[in-house]
């Protein structure tokens, strides 16, 4: 027996409604590194955990979508600040999860931090970019503004456990949606750790809910859930049959569906553009009469 200090292992937990529950099922599954070495046990979420996550996300939607865009930007930036401080932890977790060198993992973590900063800046600009006044032919002021779709289920990419995850979650919440995120099934640990960062970043509980487990098992009830407004199928990219099945289920309440994109497995480092922001926005158009200042404008 050496005198070397024994590391304190971490119990990875879900992140739901701002709390860190274990799966209600009591199940866990083994998470290994790319060489098969045991890293930790992750909660294996059940459909009931998914249901609870939707309840939490719906409850958080009013407050988060009603927050000012500036406030949301501040919160997202705070996430970047918190991540920066825990950079070493995430570099280790990403390196383990994806079998990468420390240097490569560090580059991905840095890119993920920068991605939060990028989306933090978008919160109060997207409305001006995709909304605006419409010059209708009549005495009306007509304005279109984007609004968040609601509760969005996000199937995080399977192979980019952290940068990919951040790249799909941040745009969803930047505009005021709330999210139920299914982490990469085989590499969920960075996602579960992200929950700990979000919990300390002024992000209201329930805005992001993170589940680990079997993707298909969790995605099916979420795709058919009548109180979920949209679903991002990125994490089903490798399984077209599953993606199709989920899209069919999503039609029950006409969820907005973001189909798996070719980007999966490719380079998540590229500048993402606005597509993932606009995919989960609704356009609301409001008409207001203007008319003349007085009654003298009328004639026949």
């Amino acid at each position: 027996m050496s005198d070397e200090r024994r590391r304190v292992f971490k119990t990875y937990k879900l992140y739901v409604g701002g709390k860190f529950p274990r799966s209600e099922s009591g199940r866990v599954y083994e998470v290994t590194d790319s060489k098969g070495k045991w890293l930790a046990n992750a909660p294996q979420s059940s459909r009931k955990d998914a249901r609870d996550a939707v309840v939490a996300a719906r409850k958080a939607f009013g407050g988060w979508s009603g927050a000012t865009a500036y406030n949301r930007g501040q919160v997202l930036y705070r996430v970047a600040e918190m991540l920066e401080g825990r950079r070493e932890q995430f570099v280790r977790e990403v390196a383990d999860a994806e079998g990468l060198s420390k240097a490569r993992a560090a580059a991905l973590v840095d890119a993920a931090v920068d991605r939060w900063v990028w989306y933090a800046g978008w919160t109060d600009k997207i409305g001006q970019v995709v909304g605006g006044a419409n010059p209708v032919a009549g005495p009306f002021f007509n304005l279109s503004t984007p609004e968040p779709t609601g509760v969005v289920t996000v199937l995080a990419p399977q192979d980019s456990s952290f940068l990919g995850l951040v790249s799909v979650v941040a745009p969803v919440i930047a505009t005021g949606n709330t999210a139920v995120v299914i982490a990469s099934a085989d590499a969920p640990l960075p996602a579960l750790s992200l929950g700990e960062v979000l919990a300390t970043s002024d992000l209201p509980g329930g805005v992001v809910n993170i589940l680990s487990g079997r993707t298909a098992e969790l995605a099916a009830p979420l795709a058919s859930h009548q109180d979920v407004n949209a679903i991002d199928l990125t994490g089903a990219a490798g399984d077209p049959a599953l993606a199709k099945e989920l899209e069919v289920a999503a039609a029950d309440n006409l969820k907005r569906v973001l189909r798996p994109q070719a980007v999966d497995g490719a380079d998540w480092s590229a500048e993402p553009g606005t597509r993932r922001l606009t995919a989960f926005l609704e356009t609301k158009t409001v008409w207001h009469p203007t008319g003349a200042l007085g009654a003298s404008g009328s004639s026949y």
Binding site: P139, F140, P289, T290, G291, A292, A295, G297, S298, Y300
Partner: peptide
């Protein structure tokens, strides 16, 4: 009285 609505109604009857 909403100006636009009133004038629209008058025009419509016209």
């Amino acid at each position: 009285v909403d100006t636009v609505g009133l004038e629209a109604r008058a025009a419509s009857l016209g």
